[in-house]
Design a protein around this nucleic acid. Structure first.
Length: 505
RNA sequence: GGGCGCGUAGCUCAAUGGCAGAGCAGUGGCCUUUUAAGCCAUUGGUUGAAGGUUCGAGUCCUUCCGCGCUCACCA
């Protein structure tokens, strides 16, 4: 049983009264001739042309302000394109209708109003209302706010700022905070630009299974679910990689997918349990070509979405203009830690060098994991400007191709900026025998019950045995790119309904 | 999971251990060109939950719930 607040009870009483008076508070249909923006622009054009033709309009939107002043009332309605002012006058509407509006309508209600556009004395383009009707009654009031003049400065009192309320009731957040709506418009523009970029370069957008009998393509714990009829456990994918590369075997030369990945890991300001990934695979290319395409793609998106290549992220300027800095992992670590990883070919030797720097070292960690932790601790946080770190240890990268002549290194890069990882790419391993050996290697490096180990994917190996063209592959977290483009400190700001712990009501 | 912090009216926030308050919103008035107007009056609370200390708890203690930051974890 719904518990109503006092404010809601008052609105419910209004709603009941309207019904008794024969006014349907939730009518089935609405009419509209212009959006708020179109009405204002149409009027301004007419005005510029001499104003001979009156602009008549029927507008819809949510009632966001109301200023009753005796026999006239000003109000603003807001639709998806902005706000427009309504002017209601007793002379035009009659006493009863005006009283009906000011008494029975509440902030938050959706209304429809018809009349003629004009400009008020203070210069605002406004609809002079001749008739209006209710489109949808709001029972729960939206958070209220007010601009106040203090010492000549407009102080905007916060509307809805509590992060928990904003995320749990994103609808209210969106309704009252236009900058939140803007984030998701930017987000859509980013994915649109990415698709345009890849489409124009001959990449085919595909969709591969989210429910997978085996997970793979990344090192992460999966979510497990179950198919009842098949009596089979299934995993929510942690990456698209192994399916997309199967498509290269099928002679689809350039493929990409934008979709959701699921990882059963910790949640923090750059990690959500489900997040949006872009992966592409490009036959006959290597990771250096992918690197060049990455710069080109990110700059293309910035040009399209923001119209500029220098971003401000959390007070830091980030210059996306290519070429981005290229830093061999070995050189970067040598500079930041003084440790030359090439001088430590074994985990034991590297661990000892790390202990000399007073670092905590997991005694069971393989060499690649130790290197990865050095990168995470010493390199990643310092990389504010876009930087490609390249040449990764082979043992943490089981799907990448070795560098010719350097059996312990693979052709892999990650791009970092603003102190976090943006994307990850490599020249993909296409040698089925090497791939099988890598799976076995990984199986040894991780305990059998470690869900992060890469399971042996026999079907993937079979696909590869049919012959996979040499190719370069790429993966990027879209949420993080959107964070950069919207100057958002937390991934939850760019996900409409981020995961929060369930709360008993 | 550890550490630190927060949770008070619909929203944003106050309140030395001593009468739970303000602004906005709401409600009732006045007001025919306002700018989330102005003026007058006024309603609204299980202070996240449960226990404890105390003459007295929003405040101190314990446990629990939720959120934030952070560390750990994590491609």
């Amino acid at each position: 049983m719904t518990e109503y607040t006092n404010l809601e009870k008052i609105r419910l009483e209004k709603l009941q009264r309207l019904r008794r008076e024969g006014i349907e508070p939730y009518p089935t249909r609405a009419q509209r001739t212009h959006t708020s923006l179109e009405a204002i622009q149409t009027f301004e054009r007419s005005e510029a042309a001499g104003g001979a033709d009156p602009v008549r309009a029927t507008l819809v939107g949510r009632l966001r302000s109301m200023r009753p002043m005796g026999k006239i009332t000003f109000a603003h309605i807001e639709d998806g394109y902005g706000r427009v002012q309504l002017f209601l006058r007793q002379n035009d509407l009659g006493e009863d209708q005006l009283a009906h509006f000011t008494r029975d309508y509440d902030l938050g209600d959706f209304v429809q109003a018809s009349g003629e556009m004009f400009r008020t004395r203070t210069g605002e383009v406004t609809l002079r209302v001749e008739s209006f009707r209710l489109l949808s009654k709001a029972i729960t009031p939206l958070p209220a706010a007010k601009d106040e003049l203090v010492d000549g400065q407009v102080v905007r009192h916060a509307v809805l700022t509590d992060p928990e309320s904003r995320y749990r009731q994103r609808y209210a957040d969106l309704a009252v905070n236009p900058e939140v709506r803007q984030i998701f418009q930017t987000r859509a523009a980013v994915t649109r630009a990415l698709r345009d970029f890849l489409d124009s370069r001959g990449f085919l957008e595909v969709e591969t299974p989210i429910l997978q009998p085996l997970y793979g393509g990344a090192a992460a714990r999966p979510f497990i679910t179950h198919h009842n009829q098949l009596k089979q456990d299934l995993y929510l994918r942690i990456s698209f990689e192994l399916y997309l590369k199967r498509l290269l075997v099928g002679n689809l030369e350039r493929v990409y997918e934008i979709g959701r990945d699921f990882r059963n890991e910790g949640v923090d300001r750059t990690h959500n349990p489900e997040f949006t990934m872009l992966e592409f695979y490009w036959a006959y290319a290597d990771y250096e070509q992918v690197m060049a395409l990455t710069e080109e793609m990110v700059v293309y998106v910035a040009d399209r979405v923001l119209g500029r290549r220098i971003l401000t992220y959390q007070g830091q300027e980030i210059d996306l203009n290519p070429p981005w800095r290229r830093l061999r992992m070995r050189d970067g670590l040598l500079e930041k830690t003084g440790i030359d990883i090439d001088a430590h070919p074994t985990a034991e030797s590297l661990a000892q060098a790390m202990r000399q720097l007073n670092l905590q070292v997991d005694p069971k960690a393989p060499r690649g994991k130790l290197i990865d932790s050095l990168v995470g601790d010493f390199l990643e946080p310092t990389l504010l400007q876009p930087t490609f770190i390249y040449e990764y240890p082979r043992d943490i990268t089981p799907l990448a191709k070795s560098i010719p002549g350097s059996p312990h290194l693979v052709e892999r890069f990650e791009a970092f900026m603003a102190g976090f990882e943006l994307c990850n790419a490599f020249t993909e391993l296409n040698d089925p025998l090497d791939q099988e050996a890598r799976f076995i290697e990984m199986g040894r490096a991780y305990a059998a019950d470690d869900e992060e180990r890469h399971p042996m994917d026999e079907d993937y190996l079979r696909a590869m045995r049919y012959g996979m063209p040499p190719n370069g592959g790429f993966g990027m977290g879209i949420d993080r790119l959107v964070m950069l483009f919207t100057d958002s400190a937390n991934i939850r700001e760019v996900i409409l309904f981020p995961h929060l712990r369930e709360r008993e009501e």
